[in-house]
Design a protein around this nucleic acid. Structure first.
Lengths: 207, 207
DNA sequence: TACCCGTTGTCAACATTTTTTCAAATTTAT
DNA sequence: ATAAATTTGAAAAAATGTTGACAACGGGTA
């Protein structure tokens, strides 16, 4: 069904999903690409073209059924599947991830944190147990979590990722300030790059 | 000096900066676009073309002087300037931002947090005082911080940003799960979009 | 039924980004 | 000193992404 979907289009899907969700909450049942384009500040043509990568969800003369489209994009994004996540590193970032409840609604469940600080091991954050980092591999082979969030210092990240990959992890959500390359999909949340970009834009005052 | 720099190029600068910094730490004094391209997994010609937006830093037959190039990109990114940051919201994300020490080295100083929870106001995180959110506007007009990190729930974000903008903020670093539009540069760190994208990629196993 | 209106899906035009190519500059080797 | 090897910067070509245009469709209305 899905033609070959350009990377850029896939990156825009979560945003469509978000806006459609908002419309849904407001009780809107149908929406045209034009109406959506005005809210999202993109061209209507782009919306239609993007959605068409996955098949014709709209109806001519009518627009798109909000519920159906939201549902469909959720399906494409894999939000109907249930993903179990482990968080490596129970420092500030690890804690922030563990505490964010919004993911659960979308089928993402955080089931364990790992750290090597003895004073943290055995404790809980937001009800989630902190386990000994020495046991990551064994834990993964037994419980088969799909995603690992990497929230350890850069220098430690590479080794952790290697172990995770060998133990069958399917995706890496990387919060460390370094690029990771491995055989499974890696999605990096690069806070420092993002701040530098902001600094650049302030300095070169576009917008 | 800088021709009109495409957005995509600007987004790649922090990454160049990071890799050059690593080379520098390893004592490497010169590097060719080819050598850098192999480390960064991009094409050499992209590197050359990107750098040329800002002027010819290289030398034919030799390559680039690592120190000089690193310095130059830092300059372009505004890392020689000093940015003062306030963090709105002393929850998990606000705390994670406040605790990350790496920014300081690059000239980013976090000088205050704001929250409206009375049990937090008056406290400190990582030595940084937590102030009453009611005083944000007054604080900004007096102290003129350049950047505000938004770490409050989505529904509260829009109003906070409006006040900040009126009080002269120059850039917004947005951690809330919503898009903000205002007259100053906004850089969003979208954790949930990022996770959905990872989910999509795992499901549709590219890489 | 026949016409109008709003809106999609698609295709072509346009714009941007990436890659290829190569002359000119420089270093290294002989 | 000369030739060979490297490497940049720039221009051209190719690939990719975005926007504009419009036929085709379906619902509503007379």
């Amino acid at each position: 069904m899905a033609k070959n979907v350009p990377e850029v289009v896939a990156r825009r899907l979560p945003r469509y999903y978000r806006y459609l969700g908002e419309q849904l909450e407001q009780g809107v049942t149908k929406i045209s690409s034009r109406a959506l384009s005005e809210k999202m500040r993109v061209t209507a043509s782009q919306i239609r073209q993007d959605l068409n990568c996955f098949g014709g969800f709209g109806q001519q003369g009518y627009g798109y059924n909000v519920y159906e489209l939201h549902e469909k994009i959720g399906e494409i994004l894999g939000l109907n599947d249930r993903y179990r996540i482990i968080v490596i590193g129970a420092g500030n970032v690890g804690r922030a991830v563990a505490n964010y409840a919004g993911f659960r609604r979308r089928g993402f469940v955080i089931e364990a944190l790992f750290d090597n600080d003895p004073s943290l091991i055995g404790g809980r954050i937001n009800g989630i147990p902190i386990l000994d980092a020495a046991g990551i591999g064994a834990y993964c082979r037994e419980n088969k979590p799909q995603i690992a969030a990497i929230a350890v210092p850069s220098h430690a990240a590479e080794a952790v990722v290697e172990e995770l990959e060998e133990s069958g992890i399917q995706g890496i959500w990387n919060f460390s300030h370094t690029d990771l390359n491995c055989g499974v999909p890696v999605e990096t949340v690069h806070m420092s790059d993002s701040l530098m970009n902001l600094s650049y834009r302030i300095k070169n005052k576009e917008q």
